[in-house]
Amino acid sequence: MHKENSICGRKIRKSDAVLYALIYASAALAVFLILGIILYVFVRGVGQINWTFLTTASSFLKGTVGIAGNIVNTLIIIVITLLIATPVGVGSAIYLNEYAHPGKLVTLIEFTTETLSGIPSIIYGLFGMMFFGKIWGYSILTGALTLTIMVLPLITRNTQEALKAVPASYRQGSLGIGATKWYMIRTVLLPSAMPGIVTGIILAIGRIVGESAALLFTAGSDGKLAKSMAAFFGKIFESGGTLTIELYLRMSNGEYQVAFGIGCVLLIIVLLINASTKFLAQKFDVSAKG
């Protein structure tokens, strides 16, 4: 914007000056908080991270602290959740964008999708405990199914955005040379919308990694490592705490050093997720290609 918007000598009003000061102060405070939190967690936590911390489970006998069990649990939950949520979320977006005619049904589905993204995670936790927990108890599966509902809107909305960005000419061209609708969706739309879908998945991973309230009463808090392959698959039906849950428990016990170590690992994951969504958005901008 132009600095000189008056032809006469510039006189700064007092009220202007005060508001400028407020704006700068707010922005400075926000940036200070962001950098403060991130740097503080890094500085306090980075010393805690070493090979034992990352690759073993905590052992009372050896007196070592490790988060490998929690890392594995987090990964298993991510995989199960995405295996269910991705097809359903993408399918839902395809229906909304390609098949549905505007009407009550679409309004209902869009309203409920919005509602799902507004429900706080503690409610998901309660629901998961009552619904899935009745069947599988405190287990990784219960946690993953609960999170599936939670990340569904995220994937649906991102896919929908991506589908909307695919030019209509792609559809017309494909249908015009005789493809059926499903063939067109499979071979033209989905590949073009892939970056958006992947972005949705990455955001979902971010949400799962950061989630705690929905998991506390569904997936439980166990941090042991599976000893054999059979035990590994059996683990799905057993209690398993993710990184955030472990952080919370350590924090409740006053073990702040370990908590900061886990916090540091979590922040690194968040940074990676952020960077990869940015990268995807830039690299595969369908609308920019035209």
Binding site: V209, T244, L247, Y248, M251, G263, L266, V270, I273
Partner: peptide, 12 residues
């Protein structure tokens, strides 16, 4: 980035 920070870290 701040939006992606897990809530337990704010708690911490």
């Amino acid at each position: 980035l701040l939006a992606g920070v897990p809530s337990v870290i704010y708690g911490l």
